[in-house]
Simulated assay, not measured.
Amino acid sequence: MAAPILKWKRVTNTTGPQPRPRHGHRAVAIKDLMVVFGGGNEGIVDELHVYNTATNQWFVPPVKGDVPPGCAAYGFVVDGTRILVFGGMVEYGKYSNELYELQASRWEWKRVKPRPPRNGPPPCPRLGHSFTLIGNKVYLFGGLANDSEDPKNNIPKYLNDLYTLELRANSNVMSWDIPDTYGVPPPPRESHTGVAYTSKDKPKLVIYGGMSGTRLGDLWILDINTMNWERPTVSGVHPLPRSLHSATLLGNKMFVFGGWVPLVLEELKGPNNEKSEWKCTNTLACLNLENMSWENAMMEKFEDQMPRARAGHCSVGIHSRLFVWSGRDGYRKAWNNQVCCKDLWYLETSVPGSPGRVQLVRASTTTLEVCWGATPTADAYLLQLVVTLSEYEHLEQDR
């Protein structure tokens, strides 16, 4: 059976206060809501915006409490309605290792001070790390630190350390832990992605791509049950190495979109032919995590029907849709001198499920009222009415 052709759709006619375009922001999903925080564009912002995918509406929650300073390239996870923000860039060259909690049920911020690990120091200030929730623990991996105490004298230090943060129900007491791991860990990196995937009751942390002076295209898996690192064999056509991309899990597939990719000579494509320049991309790659194979994502190629190239965007999976918002569409030498995208798109990654059973509400000789259970990602419904010959004769007699 041929693979379906995936189609992007641009979201238009949204209502409510739309956020300013930016990059380095993050987003999480709570039911039908996409919650967006932070990022930068002519300065780093502390704004919180929410997009309701069911009503096509943006809104700004009335937040209270310990609102964190603006940050970019930070860690962002959600557990139910509890959102955690860790680290990120707060000023150019100045990074954070602060932890904040947002309770989305009442839009209240709170600064959290976890206990340090028993076997080492707490995480250092960083940006571009991955922050992934698996079970009741958040896994912090890698990122970029400044090896200089002077923010104006930035000495980059790529990290590959691993910390866990246990979340306890109805408790604000948190502690960092440095877990023992086995096998060869991934090399240091930043601006990579981490997703959580569970197969046959085996939870895994999947680390992909990133930057370590050059863009990376390698894939690593941490088995949470054994805490063993592995670099699996992946089949299929591998996408170009990239950083500042997004990776979103929908079902058993990890959808990788956009990011910075190296400029590679067409006749010399390969992992070691990167120039000193790079470009943004709008390519989509799909990794089947069940059989560890890169699949060919059949896409419509019309430029006006797909997002333009970008990096530093945010993405979330809601139902079967992959939502992508903003990001920068090119590279400038000054970090805050970027061209940021204003658009919101979604990709339908699977055929919408069947709606609930059609039920008769009321009927007369001229009208028929029915109802059925809605499908969240359906744009329209086709209702087929079948009238038997005997029913038609009765209708004629009634006339």
Rank of each mutant, 00 (worst) to 15 (best):
1 M>P: 06
4 P>Q: 02
5 I>P: 01
6 L>K: 00
12 T>I: 02
21 P>H: 07
21 P>L: 05
22 R>I: 06
23 H>C: 12
24 G>P: 03
26 R>E: 15
28 V>G: 00
41 N>M: 09
43 G>E: 11
58 W>D: 01
76 F>T: 00
77 V>P: 06
81 T>A: 03
86 F>Y: 12
86 F>S: 03
88 G>R: 07
95 Y>M: 11
101 E>D: 04
110 K>N: 06
118 R>M: 13
119 N>M: 09
121 P>W: 00
124 C>E: 13
129 H>M: 15
136 N>L: 07
138 V>K: 01
139 Y>G: 02
145 A>S: 14
145 A>D: 08
152 K>G: 11
188 P>L: 11
190 E>K: 12
192 H>E: 13
194 G>Y: 10
215 R>Q: 10
227 M>D: 01
227 M>H: 10
230 E>C: 14
230 E>N: 15
233 T>G: 08
234 V>C: 09
236 G>L: 10
237 V>F: 11
239 P>G: 12
241 P>Y: 08
243 S>A: 14
245 H>R: 07
246 S>L: 04
247 A>F: 07
248 T>G: 06
250 L>G: 06
256 V>L: 15
258 G>Y: 02
262 P>T: 04
272 N>Q: 12
283 T>P: 02
292 M>T: 01
297 A>H: 08
299 M>R: 08
300 E>F: 11
300 E>P: 02
301 K>S: 06
305 Q>W: 08
309 A>E: 10
313 H>P: 03
316 V>Y: 04
317 G>C: 09
323 F>L: 06
325 W>G: 05
334 A>D: 10
336 N>C: 05
342 K>A: 13
343 D>Q: 10
346 Y>L: 01
350 S>R: 09
353 G>C: 14
354 S>E: 15
354 S>P: 03
365 T>D: 15
395 L>T: 04
397 Q>P: 00
